[in-house]
């Protein structure tokens, strides 16, 4: 019996790590298969849907930094999507910029505008912040409708030269798809990195307890501003890609509904969970857009009902974020043999 118990103790971690590896391989293969679906499904319909999923995924990943990491409720997030889109449209239409030259400009404009908006607003707390961001979203929407010289008013902007890369023009959705996918991967990786670092820990502290965070020397308002900026930049980039793909940009893409759905994606997917919010984006597109193509407004109703059920039954989201300190990180960064008992009167390096 004793020998058996010892054997089991030895084998258990082995087996579990093997099982974990099998699951990981299956998940990666599944993700690759899903992401490459537009290529083997072909046509323009499916690539269009997949681009939508990718863009909502990027929006989810960006807003996740603001809501999931730093705990700030932002109800005007799509304003930065609009800003990115209009920056691209103006640069393409009046200054002859290519999409690839505009993307960094869109990112910088989103960063700067979020800093300008965030600096005064992030001093207020909780509900007040939600109201102020809601107001900001509204302002950008009405500006898009009425600042005709910059935005083309309700008709929007269109008619710029087709973007091209190395002489290859971007016409079909399948041309844009790899770039949407690449931006999604970069956004996911960068925010994942931020989460397990000094800035990510500071956000978690602020979300959990501002008084204790301040007692650890974390400047609250500054780190909220960082979260707001580093979240908004992805919306700016996604907005530019969206405008380029549609070959048109108009205010109807940035109504309050859009900002609401962005929040819904984060809640549905799982606040703080990067894979969760990407799946949240996929879910949103499948249910609210694809389904409504067949059922009319019913798609929206189903999405709303699903959201309600989610909040009631599984408030942590589809794929909840479980914060743990990864064993591999500990092996990589930690001491080879971490001390168990105090080394008297000394306090380490």
């Amino acid at each position: 019996m004793k020998a058996l118990a010892r054997l089991r103790a030895v084998r258990r971690p082995e087996a579990s790590s093997q099982a974990r590896r099998a699951v990981r391989v299956a998940v990666v293969l599944g993700a690759v298969a899903f992401a490459s679906a537009p290529y083997w499904l072909g046509g323009t319909y499916f690539p269009d849907i997949w681009i939508d999923m990718g863009l909502w995924g990027i929006i989810g990943v960006g807003l996740n930094v603001v809501i999931g990491f730093a705990g700030l409720l932002d109800l005007g997030y799509m304003a930065f999507y609009a800003i990115g889109g209009y920056v691209f449209a103006n640069a393409a239409l009046y200054h002859g910029f290519n999409l690839w030259e505009t993307l960094p400009i869109g990112a910088v404009v989103a960063l700067v505008s979020s800093a300008i908006i965030g600096f005064p607003t992030l001093r207020v707390r909780g509900d007040y912040l939600a109201i102020m961001t809601l107001g900001f979203g509204g302002i950008v929407y009405f500006a898009a409708e009425n600042l005709t010289a910059l935005t083309g008013g309700v008709n929007g902007l269109y008619g710029w030269k087709t973007p091209s890369l190395l002489g290859h023009p971007f016409v079909t959705p399948l041309d844009f798809y790899p770039f949407v996918l690449a931006l999604l991967v970069v956004a996911a990786l960068v925010t994942m990195h931020l989460r397990t670092s000094r800035i990510g820990r500071a956000w978690a502290c602020i979300k959990d307890d501002e008084i204790a965070a301040a007692a650890s020397g974390i400047p609250i308002v500054r780190y909220k501003l960082y979260a707001y900026m580093l979240g908004s930049v992805w919306a700016g980039l996604a907005g530019a890609l969206f405008a380029a793909k549609e070959a048109l940009i108009s205010p109807e893409s940035f109504t309050f509904d859009a900002s609401f759905f962005a929040v819904a994606i984060v809640v549905l997917g799982g606040m703080g969970s990067i894979s969760g919010v990407i799946i949240g984006g996929i879910f949103y597109v499948v249910i609210a857009e694809w389904l409504s193509a067949y059922t009319g407004t019913l798609g929206g109703v189903i999405f709303a009902a699903l959201l309600l059920l989610m909040v009631l039954l599984r408030p942590q989201g589809l794929i909840p974020y479980r914060p743990t300190f990864n064993r591999r990180r500990l092996l990589r960064y930690g001491l080879p043999e971490p001390p168990v008992v105090a080394d008297d009167y000394r306090l380490g390096p």
Partner: peptide
């Protein structure tokens, strides 16, 4: 992380 491990032991 190494500092953290030592402080935790302390």
């Amino acid at each position: 992380v190494q500092r953290a491990q030592q402080v935790l032991a302390f």
